[in-house]
């Protein structure tokens, strides 16, 4: 089975917000980097490309043939997608176990695990 893991940062402090990141103890910062690296090196993981901050998003809709744009992400800023990865795993339990290792999951964010439909 192939899964897409969508990383919603929520209130997770990240290096993109230097003030919030500075409040994270240094050993925890190191652990976050080490955990992400370990996840990217896990067999079966295909890491996603780095996404710009949710604030830089533009949301596009088409109504009556007109293209409408709004500033910001589709979801609430706090709930916006912050990153993603793909994981080839035996079953959902394995994907849940990997999701639980993603730092955002324990730091105020959440991971959505979605199966990829294979034809």
């Amino acid at each position: 089975m192939k899964y897409m893991l969508l990383i919603h940062q929520g209130s997770t402090p990240t290096p993109r917000d230097p003030d919030a990141w500075a409040r994270v103890p240094e050993d925890e910062q190191k652990a976050v980097f080490a955990d992400y690296q370990a996840i990217n090196e896990t067999p079966g993981v295909t890491s996603g490309l780095q996404m710009g901050e949710p604030e830089t998003a533009t949301t596009v809709r088409v109504q009556d043939g007109r293209t409408l744009t709004t500033d910001g992400p589709f979801a609430e800023l706090k709930e916006a997608l912050g990153g993603y990865l793909f994981y080839e795993a035996d079953d959902l339990d394995a994907a849940i176990a990997l999701a639980a290792r993603i730092p955002a999951a324990r730091m105020g964010g959440a991971i959505e695990v979605r199966p990829i439909v294979e034809w």
């Binding site: 089975m1 899964y3 079953d91 339990d93 199966p115």
Partner: peptide
């Protein structure tokens, strides 16, 4: 669809 395994954990 989500691959919930048929097994004793």
């Amino acid at each position: 669809a989500a691959g919930i395994p048929f097994r004793v954990p």
